[in-house]
Amino acid sequence: MSHEIEPISDPGLPDHVHRATDTNPVAEKKAERQVAILFLLSAVGTILFIASYIFIPTTEFIFLPVMGTTNAHELFLGLGLALALLFMGLGAVHWAKTLMPDEEVIAERHEFRSEESDREDFVATVKERAAAAGLGRRSLIKRTLGLSGGLLAASPLLLLRDLGPLPKNQLQTTSWKTGTRLVTDPGNRAIKPSDLEVGAVAQVLPQLLPGEERTLNNIGKDAVLLIRLRPEEFELSPERLSWTYEGIIAFSKICSHMGCAVALYEQQTKHLLCPCHQSTFDVPRAAKVIFGPAARPLPQLAITIDSEGYLVAQKPFTEPVGPSFWERSS
């Protein structure tokens, strides 16, 4: 008994086991029939596709359990095409696995490096052609080519300009000015305090001056939610209390987290929820954040009434509405 460790010999490749279809003609016939059936099913699918395109009107609806009332035209078009492609694929794979040649072939890898003579040939050719083209001699061509190529390569830098222009003060300002009336969205009707009952909400926008147009950019900044509480429910600083009017309080609808429209108002808890990331704002405490990722309360719009008794903004928003941005001061 020697204690030397003997190297494990290379076991080689396992024996090639032939498939039933290679040795048994009955199995071969059976597999052939299976492939044929799969292809026939594919043909049935295509016929269903064609037939539903021609014969099922687009207005035909049928009721299916689980799915509900469904457009039959679309359903059978899709089903037909799905069956056609699926069974075509299944048939092809089954054919390849059971009937196509099953021989194992060993193909050795060859070296990636080219033959030494080929490499020398290549270098010689490049040198010879470069000399013939006169790249070393004709400096005018060389320089102009360099110029044109360099310009072309640098030109995409110009497109970076499309990253601008800078927004200037657009992120800091909204359309709300001192005395801007609050109007319903949609409808553009001015609102009186008596229009809102306790517990009522209103989606509002600033009233347009003649000649002004409402753009999506503006709606994205200007949207405001009006909520009426009982005045005694407020827990506000004297300044913020002076921004409300008889229990009516107004907040920017644009979430201070990511800018979604915050308008899920729970009347019983007096919480405002943002549907995107579940930030929760407590309305009686000036929209203080009580849950979720928002870092700041919603900006409050100071409101009062004008001489005709309609609700107006006392002054513009005192802070930028919406999410944080680099130049934001607070």
Binding site: G187, I191, D195, V201, I227
Partner: peptide
């Protein structure tokens, strides 16, 4: 919350109802 009659007029409320009825009857296309 409450949607007062001046904020959503009775006609606007009926429009919302008509839209919801349409949504209820909407089959899966």
């Amino acid at each position: 919350p409450v949607f007062s009659d001046k904020i959503l007029t009775p006609t606007e409320k009926l429009s919302i109802i008509k839209w919801i009825k349409a949504a209820q009857a909407e089959p899966a296309h």
